[in-house]
């Protein structure tokens, strides 16, 4: 029995009734309000939704990132999709929380929704318009992906640029030091925090690229900070 099924079964046994109809992700009604205020200027969802500034969001879960044939995505989003990024509870949660952490060059001009409950509500709402809700594991409200959140102490680390310069020679076999990007994205001149968040997203395997997952996984927190410090200086 999966942990989730176990939780449900226990719930049934204790309450002696069907679990509440409320979405364990959060309150979809509240999500609808949030969507109205924060998303609707660019995205449509629901019957008759079409692409606007952003792609329509019906059926988003279970879909590859950048997969709508009739929408022109940013280069970064298309690349992430080709790398294998698929919208699941986990990846959507990370994206809504901090879009640039998951897809660095996304055109989505949205700061991100940091509040866990609000995000859960929004995702619960989005999910109502997906054909394949089974792709989202039903999670108890406490099963937030908070273990994937970056410890503020990691973000606060001061990188040693000299060490970063040495480590960077591992990166420049593929990523060009002068910032050219062709087939492989540029990593120079990034704000340090974005760099750190992105590397940890690879390390946690939230971002799909296998070479980057491998490279990121062998750097410890100080080394990632050092790399961020070094590449931030290159422009």
């Amino acid at each position: 029995m999966t942990p989730r099924a176990l939780v449900l079964a226990l719930g049934l046994a204790v309450a002696g009734a069907l679990p509440s109809a409320a979405d364990p992700l959060g309150d979809a009604l509240r999500g609808a309000e949030l969507f109205e205020r924060q998303c609707k200027a660019c995205h449509q969802i629901g019957p008759g939704a079409i692409n606007r500034v952003g792609p329509r969001l019906n059926g988003i879960f279970g879909r590859r990132a950048g997969a709508l044939a009739d929408f022109t995505y940013s280069k970064s989003m298309a690349r992430m999709g080709a790398d294998g990024l698929t919208w699941t509870l986990e990846t959507m949660d990370a994206y809504v929380k901090n879009p640039k952490a998951l897809v660095s060059g996304t055109r989505m001009n949205y700061r991100g929704l940091k509040d866990d409950a609000a995000r859960g509500a929004l995702i619960a709402y989005l999910r109502e318009f997906s054909d394949r809700p089974q792709n989202i594991p039903e999670a108890v409200p406490t099963a937030r992906r908070s273990d994937r959140d970056l410890d503020p102490a990691i973000l606060a680390l001061k990188g040693d640029p000299e060490y970063g310069e040495y480590l960077s020679s591992e990166c420049t076999t593929c990523h060009q030091a002068d910032g050219s990007d062709q087939g492989i994205p540029s990593i120079t001149g990034w704000p340090e925090e974005d760099f750190v968040v992105a590397m940890h997203a690879y390390k946690q395997k939230l971002r799909p690229h296998p070479v980057m997952q491998m490279m990121a996984s062998r750097f410890n927190n100080d080394e990632i900070a050092a790399l961020a410090a070094w590449f931030a200086k290159l422009d």
Partner: peptide, 16 residues
Amino acid sequence: ATYEESLGWYAGITAD
């Protein structure tokens, strides 16, 4: 994408 990445790698390593 893998092919395009290889083009990027060639440009990267020869520049390096």
